[in-house]
Amino acid sequence: MDNVLEMSGVVKRFGSFAALDGLDLTVARGEVHGFLGPNGSGKTTTLRLALGMLRSNGGSMRVLGLDPWRDAAKVHRQLAYVPGDVSLWPNLTGGQVIDLLGRLQGGQDRTRRDALLEIFDLDPTKKARSYSKGNRQKVALIAALATDAEFFLLDEPTSGLDPLKEEAFRECVRQLRDDGRTVLLSSHILSEAEALSDRVSIIRDGKVVESGRLSELRHLTRTSITADVTTVPDGLDRIPGVHDVVVQGNRVSVQVEPVGLAPLMEAVTAAGLESLTSQPPTLEELFLRHYGAPAESSPDAGSQPSEGR
């Protein structure tokens, strides 16, 4: 299988600050690749490098087999990008922006454009300055999805969408995969990547720290479970994969790895289970657990410092 994106040992510095510090990332053709990391870990910088908007200070990079800096326009003909913070011309309407971007891209599918307007429920006659963040994001999403691109770079595309539109977006991504397109989806929400991705890469402080199929990364994730039981059983903390057992009266809270789920359920059921809540693992917890400290949020890592005006 050939790779649509290949980055190895990529370094990007802003002044003395290294936003990317030897980053390796590969995205195979036809996959949906989740690109996970906390705020400020370098996700956006990586995408901007792949688009040729920033110039790397070291390492090698191939996008669709080309150098994204030298052949930016050629690369872009085959890719579509949705920025994380979509900024539009305030006095153009959403419909104008969608058409304009389609034209700049070199063509878009009219029928699909109209269908997408319908799906995302966007009024194309409104001026962009009156759009909310979610609506601006829809404009960029529709413009991208209506093109015939090979490779879709989506930077936190759902951060402004309501749950209904988020589901519509997920359906669109699945459609893209069925059509054999490649998607790189950056996110700081683990569950979102989980729902869509074939493979994920996790970035932290400018380096990819984990990469693989989600099932392979399962060992990294823990579910938090809180259960009310008639009598608290002994020895819960001796079940393999169960951690951080806290007992308060008849209430038990634990963190459990996938491997410990079944034995834990048996134990609490036998103890007279009355109520149960579970929370999916979050990326933050994952970092907290596996990399010692909470992922630092260095505010300027993802985007460059903006000037005060």
């Binding site: 688009l51 908007m53 930016a72 326009a73 050629k74 890719l79 920025p83 900024s87 700049l104 891209q105």
Partner: peptide
């Protein structure tokens, strides 16, 4: 450029 509009345009097949 400062408003972020250039980023949107340059992501298409428009050259710098």
């Amino acid at each position: 450029e400062a408003a972020g509009h250039t980023e949107v345009v340059l992501a298409t097949s428009t050259t710098r």
